[in-house]
Write a protein that binds this DNA or RNA. Structure first.
Length: 434
RNA sequence: UCCUCAGUAGCUCAAUGGUAGAGCAUCCGGCUGUUAACCGGAGGGUUGCAGGUUCGAGUCCUGCCUGAGGAGCCA
């Protein structure tokens, strides 16, 4: 007898098969019971009729508790009444483990609060909605890698332990490192990307990053994943095109391959269909003007706050790219605009519908003298950056790149309120468990 | 660090300063097409903690703890 997954059920109509899984829910109606079995690939409604089964099997199924593990055996049948399109007429079942009723599965098919669900995150990820979000995340990650791999980028991952900050030290997690004293958990692979880009041309790193910010909002985690492409011989304009092309591609792949999950999430996909080239492109100056017209108190020279990003995002029907920020609000490594030295060649991509900044990047300083000047201005110790300075001594070229935050991106695609739902085990200001 | 809101049954929530209650979950019973099934019944409480006001506090006051949303900072 063939063992199949629920996703494959459609190819086995009329066959008797085994499906190993867990009891998602159970409805009873006297002599007919309807166990809903999930297996990670989907959920299938089974139909167990008393007269067609040994008494022991029927009673075992009838009294089965939520999330008990079992292997159901039965014949696959197409049925218009079934949510997935297929049902399984039960012919037998093997119980693997019965969840005791004295300690029932805590997550019921009813409503629960945030704290309770987060405490049970290890179980919550079995639920339909959470499951759908994490499948979309997987698709997003796969599409990003597919895109970059197909466009000549080499994956060169960068270290997690780092001796120094990319941007200020206040937001770094410290950790003890043998006899070296304190090292930090990376907040970006960018500086290393600049080295690997000079070795490989076009590179990216993809991994977790850490920010010790005491932020407690729906857009923040202390540990989040970022993909960071970096290109040698590339300018701000090249980076804007790459970001635009990548985002359009990834959104397209999710729409293509994860329709069902987006439906489960009740995502308005028409908003995603509109994510096509070209994105709106405005300068920081124009953004400030627009924000002030819409009532923001922002002054030229200030950074966007959360509400500002929301206003900007909602002003356009697709992501908007904002470039040329005041040098004073950006990190030390941004290349100044040759025509306006007070602004730098940086760009942020802001997602629509209030999801905020999903991409940040730009052109890096490539001239040695300017880099040394900037390090000094930012009071960054030259010794720590010796290897980074070397990159400007040995064949320096204009180069550019960006970072894209995976959780914010996935939150936007899924239309979920909080980034904590877009990673299996979120790390936040006041939560490191489970 | 600051601001706002909230903590009552395993969960989600009710309860004018006057006998702590419902739905779900659990248990018992009923139902041959249920769709967060439904119907009948049962058990289940240190009302976050410590004080205070009051004849009487889940409710009002003070402090603390925990959680949520936000600000700053950021992807």
């Amino acid at each position: 007898m063939k063992r199949i997954t629920i996703a494959e059920a459609g190819r086995h109509v009329g066959e008797t098969v085994q499906i190993p899984g867990w009891l998602y829910n159970l409805r009873r109606s006297g002599k007919v019971i309807f166990p809903l079995v999930r297996d990670g690939t989907g959920i299938i409604q089974c139909v167990a009729v008393k007269s067609a089964l040994p008494e022991q099997t029927f009673e075992m199924l009838r009294d089965l508790t939520q999330e008990s593990s079992l292997i159901v055996i039965g014949k696959v049948r197409a049925d218009a009444r079934a949510p997935g399109g297929y049902e399984l007429d039960v012919e037998g079942a093997e119980l693997i483990q019965r969840v005791p009723e004295s300690d029932p599965y805590p997550i019921t098919p009813k409503e629960h609060g945030v704290e309770f669900l987060m405490d049970h995150r290890h179980l919550w990820i079995r639920s339909r909605r959470q499951h759908a979000i994490l499948r979309v995340r997987h698709e997003v990650v796969r599409a990003i890698r597919e895109y970059l791999d197909n466009h000549g980028f080499t994956l060169v991952d960068t270290p997690i332990f780092t001796p120094a900050a990319c941007e200020g030290t206040t937001t770094l997690f410290e950790t003890r490192y043998f006899d070296e004293g304190v090292v930090y958990l990376t907040q970006s692979g960018q500086l290393y990307n600049e080295a690997t880009a000079m070795a490989f041309g076009k590179v990216y790193c993809f991994g977790p990053t850490f920010r010790a910010e005491r932020s407690k909002t729906r857009r923040h985690l202390t540990e989040f994943w970022m993909v960071e492409p970096e290109m040698a011989y590339a300018t701000l304009e090249d980076v804007k095109e790459l970001a635009e092309d990548l985002i359009v591609y990834v959104v397209g792949r999710v729409l293509e391959n994860r329709r069902q999950e987006l439906a489960t999430l009740e995502r308005d996909t028409s908003r995603l269909e509109r994510v096509q080239k070209p994105f709106a492109r405005i300068s920081y100056d124009e953004a400030v003007k627009l924000l002030r017209e819409k009532g923001s108190p922002i002054e030229w020279g200030g950074d966007f706050g959360g509400p500002d990003e929301t206003i900007l995002g909602e002003a356009f029907d697709r992501p908007v790219m904002v470039d040329r920020f005041p040098a004073s609000i950006k990190a030390f490594y941004f290349e100044p605009d040759p025509e306006r030295p007070e602004v730098v060649l940086g760009v942020d991509v802001i997602a629509p519908e209030g999801y905020g900044e999903i991409v940040g990047g730009g052109q890096r300083i490539h001239r040695l003298e300017l880099l040394l000047e900037r390090l000094e201005q930012h009071r960054l110790a030259r010794e720590i950056f010796d290897w980074y300075i070397d990159l400007r001594k040995y064949g320096t070229v204009p180069h550019s790149g960006f970072g894209m935050g995976i959780e914010r991106f996935v939150a936007w695609i899924c239309g979920v309120e909080h980034v904590r739902e877009t990673i299996a085990f979120p790390r936040m200001l006041y939560r490191t468990r489970p």
